[in-house]
């Protein structure tokens, strides 16, 4: 036990040293910025494309039978499976990376939006109809807000999937336009530098937590308060 603790403490020191050095020479900050840029771009595209697609599949049978079924199928596909195709289509470029992230995010957003819209109690629609709400007003002021709890949980899931996809993409795709966190992790492995590998893993976890606390938590707290769904 004592030896184990000693070894763990020794490793922790190595880890901290790596983190300190990486922070001082800027590799960590640079990699984080590059990764976050890729992540946000892919995630936003996934949201912007996924939300309307989800609305379409919820509203029209034609889209449900085509895009909806495809979304269900593709959601089960780990996005790392897109890497070979992405490399073939886009070469070793940022576009390949972006494509993999979008594929990771898109389908869960489509499915969550679709589920959310279908779970809107019909009585809300009817009540709004009698008050003169129609078409766009109905979509934006009734159906979307009513589906919000589902959509937000879909966005959260999409965020997690985007992270996974990007890490996979960065590990498998080496490009010269920037080294992200995934690439740092990959070279840590190549060099058997386990302090680097674990430090990067830590950074990824911390970023994930921060994103949740800063972005998703406030929205969820608001939803719970309004809907009265949880005492959190």
């Amino acid at each position: 036990m004592k030896r184990f603790l000693l070894a763990a403490a020794f490793f922790a020191v190595l880890l901290l040293l790596y983190l300190k050095n990486a922070a001082v020479d800027g590799t960590l900050a640079k990699a984080t910025v590059i990764t976050m840029r890729r992540l946000l771009a892919g995630y936003l595209i996934g949201l912007v494309v996924g939300l309307p697609l989800g609305l379409l599949t919820a509203r029209w049978k034609l889209f449900r039978d085509t895009i909806g079924t495809m979304a269900l199928g593709l959601q089960t596909l780990p996005s790392v499976c897109w890497v070979p195709l992405a490399l073939l289509w886009f070469g070793q470029t940022e576009a390949a990376m972006l494509f993999v992230v979008v594929m990771g995010t898109l389908w869960s957003v489509v499915i969550a939006t679709d589920t959310g819209v279908r779970n809107v109690p019909p009585i809300y629609r009817r009540a709004a109809l009698t008050m003169g709400s129609k078409r766009l007003h109905m979509w934006f002021k009734v159906i979307l807000p009513a589906a919000l709890p589902f959509i937000v949980s879909g966005m959260k899931q999409g965020w997690a999937f985007a992270w996974r996809s990007l890490m996979a993409a960065e590990i498998f795709v080496t490009i010269l336009t920037g080294f992200g966190l995934g690439q740092l992790l990959h070279y840590g492995r190549e060099l058997s530098a386990m302090d680097q590998v674990i430090a990067i893993m830590l950074v990824i976890v911390v970023i994930g937590l921060l994103a949740d606390k800063i972005f998703f938590s406030p929205i969820e707290t608001f939803l719970h308060r309004r809907w009265g769904t949880s005492q959190a």
């Binding site: 009540a127 008050m131 003169g132 009513a146 309004r226 809907w227």
Partner: peptide, 16 residues
Amino acid sequence: GRERLVMFQEPALFPW
């Protein structure tokens, strides 16, 4: 239409 408004049995108030 808003000339004839309905009050439903179930709560149809918008929770958002």
